[in-house]
Design a protein around this nucleic acid. Structure first.
Length: 250
DNA sequence: CCGTTATTACTCGAAATGTT
DNA sequence: AACATTTCGAGTAATAACGG
């Protein structure tokens, strides 16, 4: 039911040492953040809100991106940088995401005003450019979502990067594509195939993971048709759009 | 010899991943 | 989408080392 994907990795916070609120019917342990004189408005309701979203699933895994990226050859990394996705190469190896913190953050995100609201006068405005600053992905002038792709084009794309499966959403075997040897002798088709496969991989594993195992959304494939202009698309807006969508579900 | 501190081992829970 | 399994990290307890 409440299924949300979380596209931002959390900067490793000092994991809160809250041993779960036991069923002991004793003191309700006022959960004021260390400050003390925090907003007395409704510290409880907001907290319950986050707790109610405990049943969340998340297919986002920076670690798989990290392990792939760390095994890329110099040549491939240069290709990635040329695409404008250089920031992906710097992804830290975070193997665990704090889902509670993610859910809490998303619950504070107002999609209308595009800011995190922590209380009266406590707001952090978020812009899609910030996504680019943090993740280091292209922030071009073409909107990803305006592009569309037909079934045939999708088929052709998948074929060109070596994904043979008939299921258009499946990305099984994409790692094999990315591990194929590439050097300056390789044809431009092979390099383009690598570029497309790389974008699909990071979208599927980090930026906008689908809730289903080994599957991705189809809404960004249109942007992949144009191999030469991958860096001219606004991937930040695409990612941020998915964050907002997830926030609305919370 | 006792009390305090540091290192290590183990247990438990949460998150990731795969399957039906 | 729900369920099951695996993996990983944090917390805790036990033990060893050190100093008084």
């Amino acid at each position: 039911m409440v299924v949300e994907r979380d596209e931002k990795w959390v900067p490793q916070f000092p994991s809160n040492p809250s041993r779960r609120f036991g069923p002991s019917s004793s003191t309700p342990t006022g959960r004021n953040g260390g400050g003390g004189s925090v907003t007395p408005s409704s510290p409880n309701s907001s907290y319950d809100e986050a707790v109610s979203a405990l049943c969340i699933t998340n297919r986002c895994s920076p670690k798989s991106v990290f392990s792939l990226v760390s095994n890329l050859s110099k040549f491939k990394k240069q290709i990635v940088r040329d695409m404008g996705f250089g920031g992906i190469l710097e992804i830290p190896c975070i193997s665990k995401l704090n889902l509670k913190l993610s859910a809490w953050l998303l619950s504070k995100l107002d999609s209308e005003e595009s800011c995190l609201i922590f209380g009266p006068g406590r707001r952090i405005y978020v812009h899609e450019d910030d996504v680019g600053i943090v993740l280091g992905i292209p922030n071009g002038d073409i909107d990803v979502s305006t592009t569309s792709v037909t079934k045939e084009q999708l088929e052709l794309l998948r074929f060109s990067i070596g994904l043979a499966s008939t299921d258009p959403r499946s990305i099984k075997g994409i790692e094999y594509v990315l591990e194929k040897h590439l050097d300056d002798q390789s044809s431009s088709q092979q390099i383009d195939g690598f570029k497309v496969a790389f974008v699909v991989f990071i979208i599927g594993h980090l930026l906008a993971p689908c809730v289903k195992h080994d599957q991705v959304h189809l809404d960004f494939w249109g942007a992949l048709k144009n191999h030469a202009a991958l860096e001219r698309y606004n991937w930040c807006r695409y990612v941020y759009g998915h964050v907002l969508e997830a926030a609305q579900k919370v």
